[in-house]
């Protein structure tokens, strides 16, 4: 057990925890941030992605040891931003959500694409989403949503 401090969705937080605990569990159990989902627990599905110092990471693979002093942003944090509204609307309009279990992860991956590219190619978009599994939508509408986001962001 150790006291761990980090920034969570813009706020300084601290907690007593073992350093080997997964960031995913800390977010879900200690902070009640259940928008980050566990699909596999092995870094293979992308349902658990969060931003760690701006990098998109699978929180199921991140031990608390690697979080000390860093900045974590989850879907709940992202949801407070202006750009999130654009992404949400795009996902709604495109019909990119079915069961919704992959969706927060897809939104995070979309945000990552927006931070990284100005005019991504289709291949770059597909590649950017390829770490996130969706079993419902067949991805087509998600790709449409992401394209919409880029059109809208352009107009901002």
């Amino acid at each position: 057990m150790r006291n761990v401090e980090f920034i969570l969705n813009g706020k300084a937080v601290s907690l007593e925890t073992s350093l080997s605990r997964r960031l995913l569990d800390v977010l879900r159990e200690d902070f009640g941030l259940t928008g980050t989902k566990e699909g596999c627990g092995e870094g293979e599905c992308g349902a658990c992605v969060v931003f760690l110092d701006g990098e998109l990471v699978n929180s199921c693979l991140v031990p608390m040891n690697s979080v000390i002093g860093k900045e974590v942003q989850t879907i709940e944090g992202l949801a407070q931003t202006k750009r999130y509204r654009i992404i949400e609307d795009a996902f709604v309009m495109a019909g990119a959500v079915q069961c919704g279990f992959c969706t927060p992860g897809m939104v995070m991956a979309t945000e990552y694409l927006v931070r990284r590219y100005k005019h991504p190619t289709n291949e770059e978009i597909r590649e950017g989403l390829s770490g996130n599994i969706c079993r419902c939508t067949g991805y087509q509408t998600i790709l449409e949503a992401v394209k919409r986001v880029f059109e809208e962001v352009e107009d901002l």
């Binding site: 989902k37 879907i75 949801a79 992404i87 996902f91 069961c99 919704g100 927060p104």
Partner: peptide, 23 residues
């Protein structure tokens, strides 16, 4: 004619609670 799904926004923002999310 396509309408917006009724269950989407909470799923996108992560508010929808699946069984593992319920206390």
């Amino acid at each position: 004619d396509k309408v917006a799904r009724v269950d989407t926004r909470d799923k996108i923002s992560g508010k929808t609670r699946y069984i593992e999310d319920i206390a």
